[in-house]
Simulated assay, not measured.
Amino acid sequence: MEKKSFTFDEIKLKLVNYCVYQDRCHAEVEQKMREFLLIDEAKDEIILYLMKENYLNEERFTRSYIRGKFYIKHWGRAKIKMHLKQKQITDKLISSCFDEIDEDDYIKMIRKIYEDYHSRQKGQEYQKKSKTIKYLMSRGFEYEKITDIFE
């Protein structure tokens, strides 16, 4: 099947809609642009346009990503950070946006997941505890934070 060709303005509009549908980061937009045969100058022009018109805003993306992954998916900071780095978000930006997660909510989330998971485990207390800590760490919660709560 041959690729349908679009005009520059049609491609630009498609990318605007892509950004409007949900916050995107630069890497996602660049990935999306690969679907269209664009020269580098055209890609740069579209990226600049999206940024200038505030369709593409890396900080807004990062903040919304952090909120969603914590409050909806219940991920810890380590897992969120790893996934943002895969999207080529800088450490500096990630760190400055982590204030989207309220520290009390973070501790409460660890407690809640701990209690829910721990209560479903079988075996000796130390096995249940160790399994639960491993589980929380796989969700991206920091070992120090987990153990602090239960000291």
Rank of each mutant, 00 (worst) to 15 (best):
R67W: 00
Y55W: 15
F70K: 01
A42N: 13
F70R: 01
K92C: 11
K73F: 13
V29M: 01
I107N: 06
R24G: 04
Y106N: 05
A78E: 15
E53I: 07
I101D: 02
E58T: 03
R77T: 08
F8D: 05
T90K: 03
K73E: 14
I89H: 04
M33K: 05
F98K: 01
E103M: 09
K73V: 10
M51A: 11
H74C: 06
E41D: 12
G123V: 07
I107P: 03
S130D: 08
V29W: 03
T90P: 02
D116H: 06
N57C: 10
L13P: 07
V20A: 15
L15S: 04
R63M: 09
Y65V: 00
Q121I: 03
K73C: 12
G68Q: 03
L37E: 14
S96P: 06
K81G: 15
V29I: 03
D105F: 10
Y21R: 14
I101T: 00
I11R: 07
A42K: 13
D105Q: 09
L84I: 09
D44H: 10
L13K: 15
E125R: 13
E41I: 13
L13H: 15
C19E: 04
I107V: 13
I80S: 07
K92Q: 13
K32Q: 08
E103T: 06
E100R: 04
Y114P: 02
E41H: 13
I113E: 13
R60E: 04
K108W: 12
I11K: 10
F36S: 02
K131T: 00
I110T: 04
R63K: 08
E30S: 02
C97E: 05
S130T: 00
K32D: 03
C19W: 07
L84S: 06
D104F: 13
V29K: 00
M33Y: 12
E59F: 00
M109S: 12
K129A: 06
C25F: 12
L56S: 04
D40R: 13
F8E: 07
A78D: 14
I80C: 11
C19D: 02
I72Q: 14
K52S: 12
C25Y: 09
E100V: 02
T62E: 08
H74S: 07
D23S: 15
E59W: 02
F70Y: 06
A27E: 12
D44S: 10
F70L: 07
K87Y: 09
Y114K: 04
K43W: 12
R120V: 09
K81Y: 11
K12A: 11
K81Q: 13
S96D: 12
L50M: 08
D99Y: 08
K122Y: 14
F70P: 02
